[in-house]
Each structure stands twice: as C-alpha cells, then as structure tokens.
Nucleic acid binder design. Sequence first.
DNA 1: CTTAGTACTC
Length: 665
Amino acid sequence: MLAKPTTLLLQKHLSRLNSSNTQGNRTTKFLVHCHSQITKHGRNGDLKEAESIFSRMPHKNAISWTAMLTAYYENGHIAKARKMFEKMPQRTTASYNAMITAYTRSNPMMIGEASKLFAEMRERNSISYAAMITGLARAGMVDNAEELYLETPVEWRDPVCSNALISGYLKVGRLEEATRIFEGMGERDVISWSSMVDGYCKKGKIGHARELFERMPERNVVTWTAMIDGHMKMGCYEVGFGLFLRMRKEGFVKVNPTTLTVMFEACSEFGEYKEGIQMHGLVSRMGFEFDVFLGNAIIIMYCRFSFVVEARKIFDMMNRKDVVSWNALIAGYVQNDEVEEGYVLFEKTQQKDVISWTTMITGFSNKGKMGKSIELFRMMPKQDDIAWTAVISGFVGNGEYEEAIYWFIEMLRKVVRPNPLTLSSVLSASAGLATLNQGLQIHTLVVKMGMEFDLSIQNSLVSMYTKCGNVADGHQIFTSINSPNIVSFNSMITGFAQNGFGEEALELFHKMLNEGQKPNEITFLGVLSACTHVGLLEQGWNYFKSMKSLYQIEPGPHHYACIVDLLGRAGFLDDAIDLIRSMPCEPHSGVWGALLGASRIHLRLDVAKLAAQQIFKLEPDNAAPYAVLSFLYSSAGRNRDSEQVRMAQGLKGVKKSAGYSWIIV
DNA sequence: CTTAGTACTC
C-alpha cells in the first residue's frame, strides 16, 4: 500500500521528536533490545544466553519476565517458567496468557492449572480466550472449549478458534460435531477445509474427503498430503500415487518433507524397491535435510527391501535421531539375519523403549538363542505383556513348548494381562504338545477374557483342537469365524488332512478357492498331504503342478517330500527318484525319508539303500535308515546282512527312538 | 519489546 502524504509528514514529525531524545527513551530502547534478544536466543534454544541477558538487566519490567518465561517453556522447562510467573513483581494480561500457553503446550494434562489461572484473571483479551480454547480442544475437552468459545465477547471471537474446535472434535473422532462447526463458519480458510478433508480420510470416508477436496477453493501442500495419505492408508496405492503426480503437475504445489514421508511409507507398504529408489533420488535432488520423520521413513523403506546398508547410510547422515530411528535400523538388521549387528546398535544407543528390547528378544529367539533372549528380558526395566509374549512365542518358535507354557504361567503369576497374541502363542504350544487338557484350560481363559472373537486366537484354537485330534471342535470353531483368512483355511485344511479327513480337506480347499481366497505354500502342504491320505495320486500330482503354473508358488522341499510320499506309496518309486533328481532345491532328509518309507512298503531294497545313503549324510543320528534296511534284508532272507546293519547302528551309537523326523506331516 | 493461532508424517 502506498503511504499517503499526510502519513509521511506525520512520520517525519515523530522521528524529529524521537531524535531530540530524553534519558527515559534511551532506557526504553535498551529494554526493547534486551527483550528481543531474550526472545531470539530462546527460539534458538540458547537458554544460557537468554538467562545471562535477563540476569544482567538493571531494570526489568513485566515484559522482561514474560519474555524469559516464554523462553523457558519453549525449551521444555515448564517448572522454570512457572517459577518466573510466581516471582515476577507484577503480572499483566500478557504474562497470564503466556503462562496459560506454557501449561497447555507442555502437557495437555496441565489444562487444570491453566483453567485456574484463566479464572483468576481480572482482565482478559482475545489472546487469553484463544489460548484457553485451543488448550481445552487439545486436551480433548472440546465441549468445554466450545462453551468458552460461545462465552467469548463477540468482538473477540477469532475465526482461528473455530479451526481449533474443528481439530479438537476431529481428534476425539466426533466428525459430526466438526462438520457442524465447519458448516456454521462464515469464512473458512484453507486450514478449515484441510482439517475436514483429513478428518474424513481418518474415518475412512475417502469419497467424502474427495468431494470436499474438489470443492474447496484453494489447496496447499498440506491438503494434498492429507489426501494422498488418506488414500494410501486405505490401500488405494494407485490413486494415492496419481494424486502425488497430479499435485506436482497441476497443483503447482511443492512437496514438503511430510509429503515425502507419506510417499516412502507407501513405497514400503505397497511399492517396489524401484519406486523407493526413485523417491530417494527426488529427495536428494531437492536437497532436503532429513528431518526425523522423513529419515525414519526412508530407513524403514530400505530395511523393508533388505537394503540395510543403504538404510545405515541414511541413519548416519541424520543430524537428529530419535528412538524410532534406532529401532527401525535395529529391526532392519535383525530381520535381515544380522542379529549381532543389530545388537551392537542396541548396546550403543541411550534411546531405548520397550520396542527396542522386544526387537532384540525376538531377534535372538529367531536365531534359536533363547538364553540370550531371557537374559535381555530379565535386564529390561519393565516387562510388559508384549515383552512376555516375545519370550513365549520365542519358545514356541523353537519348538520348546513346555518352556512356553512355563513362562506363560509365570506371566500370569506376575499378574501381567495376556494379550490376544500371547494366548494365540500358548495355544500353539498346546497344539505342539498335543495336550488337549491344557488347550481347553487356555480356551476357557480366552472366553473369560472376552477374546474368543479375535481372529488369530480363533485360528490357533482350530490348530490346537485338530492337532489334539479333536477335529469336530476345531471345525466348530472354524465355522464360527466371521471372515476366515488364509491362516484360518490353512489351519482347518491341515487339521482335516492330519486326522485322515482327506476328502473334507480337499472340499474345503475348493470352497476357499471359490471364495476368491488365494492359497499359499502352507495351503498346498495340507492339500498334498490330504491327497496322500486318500491316495489320490493323479489329483495330488495336478495340485502339485498347479502350484507354479496357477499360483506362482515355487514348491519347497516339504512339498517335494509330500509328492514323493504320494508317488512312493502308490508304488511309483522310480518316478519319485526321477522327481527328486529334477528338484530345483536341495532335497532335505524329509524327501529321502519319504522315499525310504515307500521302499519299505514296496520291499525295494535298492531304493532303500539309495535313500539311506543320503540320510546318513544329512542326518547321521537318524535311526530310521537302519531300521528299514535291516527289515528289508531280513524280509529278503538275508539275515546276516540284517544283523550287520543293526551292529553298525550299535557301533555308531544311534538310538532307535531318534528317528521320526522324516515322517511327513 | 512480551502473550494466542488451527491442518498432513515415522
């Protein structure tokens, strides 16, 4: 705006007055200088300097004290801020306002203290009301916030407060109330609109969000980012990525670190490594400094695609790291089979939380080092349900079911409340032990705790009952599941197959396919063993072939073991040997064990020798080859050879009971 | 010169 000539005259006049200065005016200038210096140093985080100026001031007024108070709370020193407020010689409306803000910003729970101050104020201005209303809204006391808003003298009502109310209502999930405020607003700014767009996204109402988004007069980077994130979180990856491109092309909006954080998160979730790399290139070109959120998102992305070295580079480049950064990289090492490397970081960092500890506990458990897991568990400052569960499922994962149950009982004795994952783990332990009695007790506990409709628990119950031989109860649980997932189907199919209900297993498999559920490698393990039980050679062979051709699943050694078992039992031993020879993966002892079993049924000494030879190599302590060989020799009337095999076994000290690891489940 | 101000992220 152009200054009017009269205004210019007035300014000249005033500056002449100022230059013919007095002592008092110099003092004022010095005070003003000190106040802005205190504020400046406070904002830079240099409290020492701010304090030094404050203490050296010969004359202080209310503004000096308020400036220092603000410097303290902005740097997280609420107690010192309070001391300032209590010690200051006189309090002004501004100092009250500052202290109210200090309370509400340092901790929403201190809203009570803020209210007390607000109540004792003799005079309030618009800032007092705005501070109090936003404080209440942030603390989740939105109704009180709105009440105060309505009490605010009309000439003070600040449109910013409406936005604070909207965000307050959205924070506690009251979308209707937020909409009511939004609709009632005379003038809405981009923040009002963006808040509503985000609110709809968070409620999963993407359509509504989109409607508002297209309708709003002006969008900025925050609006676009909220929309993109909303779509990503709902799994609409394509649309989200499209919005990102659209934002840059037609939105004329520059991305910010938050946008990129959202994009990296989406890459980890749905994308491919390629896209993550592209995003990383974008970040480098834009020359962003890694803020903590962005850096963490990139670390997580690289770890997700097993590029831990790249993740480490980002980590080392970050100026500021938080506990999420450390945990992300530790988890990256642990999940990519470098537990020791993760442990080095774990020992190095001062920033540890329950997640860091449980990540390490799980990491060592996965390596079979339960001793180390327990050691860490005992060392952690406070063992919560998640930590207990990590230990328990660690034992389950290592097949130490009794230990798992023992630790579960310990957990109950320490009065730590189990979560659904805990119960699911101990049910797996009961399934592993095939101890129905124990499983029943845990089932009772599940019901008592009201967790019987948790899907992972229901799945574990199906496994537990069927592994204990109680197919009927397992099936009953299965039919009670509202929307069974792949694990539910696998548990039931395997349960049927293991108990000799091959036809039921296959029937369920087809039902699963009809429902559009994609099978995985575990499904086929159940299906193939079902075929073995019923002796469906051709069908089993077709399923086996369909794994790769229809479902892009590469059969593993366990699948080969099943199909060798199937072929072998039907008498096609030579075909089975050909198949083993053609395997793309290394046949493990289970595959040879299946062949060995078949050679016993069909009295094929030659095949048994071949299989035994391989098993000797892979599992020298396995007694099964000795038993089968000696049986076949004696069946062929070669009692001397039979005796020799048994003697060889005795010399090597192999125990007879050692050998059922090759029995295919 | 001091005090209020809202939306997106790990």
